[in-house]
Design a protein around this nucleic acid. Structure first.
Length: 493
RNA sequence: GCUGCCAUCGUCUAGCGGUUUAGGACAUCGCCCUCUCAAGGCGGAGAUCACGGGUUCAAAUCCCGUUGGCAGCGCCA
């Protein structure tokens, strides 16, 4: 048993985002590969935006993705619990450590108002300096502090950053990255309402939860020196850091809601398989030497390695995801796809799409269209003609096969001949039907296509579909004959 | 504005100084298979390895600079 411990720490302020899934996935893969622990921690310190519903959605999405956590919500008896930061805040965990820093002189109360701080930042920026807090309250005497308290001024707690030197990060993915301490300001670690800020709570929890590796998006890289300084202030051993490159939208900007389809939920609703999403996301920023594209979850966790994570950002490509989804579906048995489809119907509340459809027939119809299914949502429209009472004759099919000068004569012959002959066809198996159709073509001196196409349109209303004779076999003699009759009445009378 | 990160086919990537006429995958195009549509098979096109300097006998690979893209700069996380 290794002692590797990693975590995924989403803030519940909305759906689980594609970028978040990738972060969760890589942490999960790393933990599984190293036989370590994968921890889920809810960072709900933004009281204005955090909400219960988002927690539910995130947990649900993680379960759907099969990114199971070893510790997290639901494990409230474990020694590292609780896994919600607001619950930890209620236990006074952060305040205790903030007080410790104040006692050490490494943090101090700041009474500046938001307006004052904004003004400082603007001023710094006009002087071509990085916008930072100017340290007004850094060296207040205890008398001055007392006076401000007496005046009823609200205080935040700021961390006293070193003003000289460099903070050196040895990132597993990026190597050495240096930050000039003079460019960093005394950031807030506890807000005026007593709630810790991200940079503070994150460090305290990673320490207490004994996190060994922090694997996150590189949008966090500039937070790292601040966090490292907090570790230093307490004299704590730091975890290893690994910053992954971002996932970009088609316009080259970081993937976000504004690109649409940024939430996992939307992919689930579209009928993507969790395996496809996971496999695809693994390929964004990680690769094997042989450039293998298709992996089972098992293979991924066996082969995953941070060393093989890339440093450059990658563009999310929906076309490749779609292809992978088709691949995953094709690799399943009809039975498995059926189960997945039923789950999808339930999840999307779409049961009415297959209302009254016979399950046995549906399974068989689906297996005829097996390699055409790209998304679970495609299934109904692929096989609906087996179930509908009336055939939906598509205009382009009618024009092409029944009404065009090129084929209307032969179509009429084929259909009128077939209706009488098929009634007496004893063997209605695909093989026998094909023989029948070929014989008819030979007898009437027609090309096989001239026989096959009109029958297809007559019984399905379309020019595309599964193998014609398997379709006929599955549909059954009665329905086939009656539909041919309907087609004759409709188009050849 | 400041700081940081990044830079190989349209996209995801392999490549870690010579084995490279830069390999694979998606997308795209063509052919084959074929009762249609798919799937599958085969093949094509597609990258002067962002640009400019070095280092070296030798650079996509190492170093520096330029340009471009992105990110961060909150009492958001």
């Amino acid at each position: 048993m290794s002692n590797i411990r990693v975590r995924f720490a989403p803030s519940p302020t909305g759906d689980l985002h594609i970028g978040g899934v990738r972060t969760a996935l890589f942490n999960w893969l790393f933990a599984r590969n190293k036989n370590g622990k994968f921890i889920l921690r809810i960072e709900d310190t933004d009281e204005a935006r955090s909400n219960e519903e988002s927690v539910k959605v995130i947990l649900d999405a993680m379960k759907w993705l099969r990114l199971g956590w070893d510790e997290g919500p639901g494990n409230e008896l474990l020694k590292y619990a609780p896994y919600y930061q607001m619950k930890r805040k209620e236990q006074g965990i952060y305040q205790k450590y903030a007080d410790e820093l104040i006692a050490k002189g490494l943090a101090y109360p700041c009474y500046c108002t938001t307006e004052e701080v904004d003004a400082m930042r603007k001023k710094a920026q006009t002087n071509k300096l990085p916008p930072k807090y100017d340290g007004s309250c850094r060296n207040l005497t205890s008398d001055q502090r007392k006076q401000k308290e007496v005046d009823g001024m609200k205080a935040v707690i700021r961390f006293r950053m070193p003003v000289v030197g460099v903070t050196v990060l040895n990132d597993i993915i990026r190597g050495k990255v240096e930050f000039d301490n003079s460019l960093l300001d005394d950031f807030v670690i506890v807000k005026a309402n007593g709630v810790p800020t991200y940079n503070f709570a994150c460090v305290i929890d990673d320490y207490l939860m004994e996190i060994t590796h922090v694997l996150r998006g590189d949008d966090h890289i500039s937070n790292t020196p601040r966090q490292m300084q907090i570790y230093n202030a307490f004299g704590w051993k730091m975890p290893e850091f690994a910053h992954m490159a971002m996932i970009l939208g088609p316009d080259g900007a970081r993937l976000s809601k504004r690109h649409g389809h940024a939430s996992v939920l939307e992919y689930r609703k579209e009928g993507y398989l969790q395996e496809a999403l996971i496999n695809y996301l693994a390929l964004l920023g990680w690769s094997t030497e042989d450039s293998q594209q298709i992996f089972t979850a098992e293979e991924m966790m066996l082969r995953f390695s941070i060393d093989r994570c890339g440093v450059s950002p990658s563009t999310f490509d929906p076309a490749k995801l779609l292809w992978l989804n088709g691949e995953k579906i094709r690799s399943k048995t009809p039975e498995q796809i059926y189960d997945l489809f039923v789950d999808w119907l339930k999840y999307t509340n779409n049961e009415r799409l297959v209302e009254g459809w016979d399950a046995g027939l549906l399974k068989k119809a689906m297996s005829l269209e097996h390699n055409k299914i790209k998304l679970l949502k495609d299934i109904p429209s692929l096989v609906d003609f087996f179930f509908t009472k009336e055939v939906d004759y598509r205009e382009e099919a009618i024009d092409k096969v029944f009404l065009s000068d090129r084929s209307k004569e032969s179509a009429k012959i084929v259909l009128t001949e077939s209706i009488s002959r098929l009634v007496n066809q004893q063997d209605f198996s695909a093989g026998a039907l094909e023989q029948y159709a070929r014989d008819l073509a030979a007898e009437k001196a027609l090309k096989t296509g001239q026989v096959f196409h009109p029958i297809r349109v007559a019984i399905s209303g379309r020019t595309q579909g599964p193998s014609l004779f398997h379709t006929m076999e599955l549909m059954g003699k009665e329905k086939v004959v009656s539909r041919i009759g309907i087609a004759i009445n409709k188009f050849f009378k």
